[in-house]
Amino acid sequence: MNVIDTPIDTKIVARSDESSDIFTLTLQFTDTEKKDYAFQPGQFNMLYLFGVGEVPISILSNGVDNRLYAHTIRRVGRVTDGLSLLQVGDHVGLRGPFGRGWPLDLAQGKDVLVITGGLGCAPSVSIIYHILKHRADFGRLFILQGVKHSSDLIFKKQYEQWAALPNVQVALAADSSQPNWPGHTGLITELLDQINLDVNNTLCMMCGPEGMMRASVQRLTQMHFPEEAIYLSLERNMECAVGHCGHCQFGGDFICKEGPVFNYPQVKALLNKKGF
């Protein structure tokens, strides 16, 4: 069955709350014989809530079992509200995978800098798992995550685990923080001064609010980090995921098809304009 035009049935095999409004659903195809589904880190699925509709959600690999697909979701609208109420054993429709993922092949042999903000950390988890799985193919790994308030940080345990690994540096920033916050209080761009970047041998992958990504690019270019080595994941309204419904147009690109991951020079002009 084609999983592009019509959804396929999946079952929730695990569910966890990451914060008061962010939760993770791990899905498994009910047709366990289904073997032709494969995704690249950075791609997304359309998840379908019965009787309500679909939403685009990035796929997190858990790094262990390729038959389980985790999706970390924020409760913001009708579909995601409904999804948040589902429990283990409930069913969800799935179409996918869609879009162009992270350029992990280009990162081989280089250091990797992952800069994320807010829930932007979710689409980047698959990068981290991929690198950890193929550790010898990559250089140092820098993981920078920024949140508005320190209490917004999710995946705390994973950050601690990654920070303990050799050749991995994790740096966290919160615009405002409560006591005992182990990270930096301030902007994520300030974290760039705390790490020892080799600007000529690093690939940067970024996902988060556009303001945060613009500021990060600006700081990186000040540090003479080449623009061509920056990739970012963009987001717009998406309803079809195949470049037909028109909602995710970003100039001449459909974010669902040509993106969501773009090389910075390709989207630079419009990223700095309002209304696209």
Binding site: T6, P7, D9, T30, Y48, F50, G89, D90, H91, G93
Partner: peptide, 13 residues
């Protein structure tokens, strides 16, 4: 497309 939900809650699309 259309979807049917069976007694176990599984979907057929």
């Amino acid at each position: 497309w259309r979807v049917e939900r069976d007694e176990e809650g599984a979907f057929t699309f």
